[in-house]
């Protein structure tokens, strides 16, 4: 059965309409919690859109990030900043209007630029005529990786992925530098945090039974990225989400006893280091940086299989960094930097 793009265009119209409604709602609603919920719904819808466009790997990333991380980080940030928000300050109103004008100008420029983009699934576009055929036809024979997205991501475009991971690492670093402080300096802020009361028997039971499944599934996603959608980014996000769930269902201290801040930082840096180290090893063995073919002799396999193994090793590095960065972002943002109590 072949996919007919024109078959379900009504789907697209309806989903796009709902996405616009969500975006407007997120802007118009009063409370930060409501706005965060509206952006969560937006993320579900855009994942549906990407699934419908057959961008399976992108949809998977959105599923993992949108369902687990992004809204939680929004909520953590909202809780942190809501201690300083005072309503209807005239100066802030002016800044808001300025932001609106800038956002409108940027949106107009982007809309104007979309006219130059090729149509969706346009076979005559430059990307489809020059680059993609080579990847699709040669990818499997050169890297022994059936999922061509993984092959492009971690082999042909390995530099890009490495610096993406560096950017993710830098994000965690910046959040830590901005927010992290020891608790006694800002005692006033600590006093303002209401205590969480009540027992969470059902939540804790559910967390106990679902977290091991989640972690096994994350490892499956990471290691099965060669054959199905998934890979380091998605697996790492799901693994990190299991620790965030632990912190949500118990408390931040409980999660931090399992995965200490020092370990998180070591993992953050270690994943990037593993990635770059593999590149440097290839360089020292006489090939290009990240040219996995150089590892063939050391591993005792053919050049094609060496590239496959290289992709796997690099994906593991990506997974470790992304997992630790997600946990680190949650620790710092949800607790406001003092790591005393989370969301």
């Amino acid at each position: 059965m072949t996919w007919d793009a024109s078959l379900l265009w009504q789907f697209d119209i309806l989903i796009l309409l709902m996405m616009v409604i969500c975006a407007v709602t997120a802007l118009a609603l009063e409370g930060l919690l409501s706005s965060a919920i509206a952006t969560g719904v937006y993320s579900f819808l855009i994942c549906l859109m990407w699934t419908h466009m057959m961008a399976v790997d992108v949809a998977f990333t959105e599923a993992a990030v949108g369902a687990a991380i992004s809204t939680v980080i929004f909520l953590g940030t909202a809780q942190y900043i809501s201690r300083w928000i005072k309503k209807d300050r005239p100066k802030e109103q002016g800044i808001k209007q300025l932001t609106l004008v800038i956002a409108m100008i940027c949106a107009g420029m982007m809309l104007a630029a979309t006219r130059d983009l090729p149509d969706w699934a346009d076979t005559a576009s430059p990307a489809s005529t020059h680059l993609s055929p080579g990847y699709i036809e040669q990818g499997y024979f050169e890297t022994a990786t059936p999922n061509v997205v993984t092959a492009v991501l971690a082999d042909y475009r390995s530099y890009d992925t490495m610096f993406e991971v560096v950017v993710v690492f830098a994000a965690a670093l910046v959040v830590m530098v901005l927010l992290r402080h020891t608790s006694h300096k800002h005692r006033k802020v600590l006093h303002l945090r209401p205590k969480r009361e009540g027992r969470d028997t059902v939540l804790r039971g559910a967390a106990q039974s679902i977290i091991p499944v989640m972690q096994i599934f994350a490892l499956y996603v990471l290691f099965h990225g060669h054959y199905s959608p998934g890979g380091g980014f998605q697996g790492g996000v799901i693994f990190g989400a299991s620790f965030i769930l632990l912190a949500l269902c118990y408390n931040l201290k409980f999660s931090m006893n399992r995965f200490k801040e020092h370990a998180v930082l070591w993992c953050c840096a270690g994943g990037v280091l593993l990635y770059a180290g593999i590149g440097a090893a290839c360089l020292s063995l006489g090939m290009n940086f990240l040219g996995y073919g150089a590892l063939a002799d050391g591993l005792g396999v053919s050049v094609v299989m060496a590239r496959s193994h290289g992709i796997l090793a690099v994906e593991i590095g990506v997974g470790i960094t992304v997992m630790a960065v997600m946990v680190s972002l949650y620790y710092d943002l949800a607790s406001g930097g003092d790591l005393e109590d989370g969301l």
Partner: peptide, 14 residues
Amino acid sequence: LLNFITTIAAARFY
């Protein structure tokens, strides 16, 4: 697996 994390976070916030 992940759908309810957001709901739990929102409930904790609330």
